[in-house]
């Protein structure tokens, strides 16, 4: 018989490491997500850039970037949870004595890491395409993206897990997720646009949006830790 169960943090870390290792084996989600995000940026460029001026207003650039994050993140979530369904691996996970909240935390961390890696690639790309300077407030911009991604993942993991056995899971994930994360996208895009504006950078405004994102992340993670077990793992 096993000795004392490992601690909550250790178990959450195990789950996160497992997800990231699985991903590292095939890099499937990482590559496809990055490619999708880039395509979204490009498609919007085709739609918005007109004439010989290749720059867009900061608010449009920021909006495109966050839409790319939202779309690629949703697709990434679906694929990550497909892996749990294949071969019923999720059942073995649920049969183990790991607290459900630790499974949740591990999955949120793994999703956030994955999405953030995609953002680290796509954001500079978008800056190049739209002739925008991102280096001025690079760290701040990264913080905005990170906080927004945590908020997104915190909601997305709960819904994806609950949708594991639904036939219309892909469309339902978007239907459920997008309205809930609308404030995150709004705050992220507005904050980013304020940081990207070379003429009149509005630091106070950016700080306010950063705070909104931080509050959203904390609130969503708290509710997620609480609601994951009954939503995702009842019979």
């Amino acid at each position: 018989m096993p000795a004392a169960s490992p601690g909550w943090w250790a178990q959450a870390a195990q789950i996160a490491r497992k997800d990231l290792r699985l991903e590292w084996r095939s890099r499937e989600v990482l590559f496809t997500m990055t490619f999708l995000a880039t395509l979204v940026v490009l498609i919007f460029s085709f739609a918005f850039i007109a004439g010989d001026d290749s720059s867009l207003s900061p608010s449009v650039t920021a909006g495109i970037l966050w839409v790319a994050v939202l779309f690629s993140g949703t697709v990434g979530l679906s694929r990550t949870f497909d892996r749990e369904r294949e071969g019923e691996a999720i059942r073995s996970l649920l049969l183990s004595p790991v607290p459900r909240s630790a499974i949740y935390a591990g999955k949120v961390v793994a999703t956030t890491v994955l999405m953030f890696m995609v953002e680290l690639i796509v954001t500079p790309l978008a800056a190049v395409f739209f002739s925008t300077t991102i280096s001025t407030h690079a760290a701040w911009l990264a913080l905005l993206l990170l906080l927004g991604t945590i908020g997104f993942a915190a909601v997305g993991v709960v819904f994806s897990a609950g949708l594991l056995r639904s036939r219309s899971r892909d469309v339902l994930l978007s239907v459920m997720l997008f309205p809930i994360v609308a404030p995150v996208v709004m705050a992220g895009a507005r904050g980013t646009s304020l940081l990207l504006d070379p003429a009149t950078p509005d630091m106070g405004g950016a700080l306010l949006w950063t705070q909104v994102l931080a509050v959203a992340a904390v609130v969503f993670v708290t509710v997620g830790l609480w609601a994951f077990e009954p939503v995702a793992t009842g019979e």
Binding site: A3, S5, P6, K18, L22, G87, S92, S96, P97, V98
Partner: peptide, 24 residues
């Protein structure tokens, strides 16, 4: 259904669940 992760090796699968169960 096997209840295992196809992209992990046999050893990795077992160590994952072993450590989740807290096996020394």
């Amino acid at each position: 259904e096997p209840g295992l992760y196809g992209d992990l090796t046999a050893r990795e699968n077992l160590s994952l669940f072993g450590s989740l169960y807290g096996i020394p």
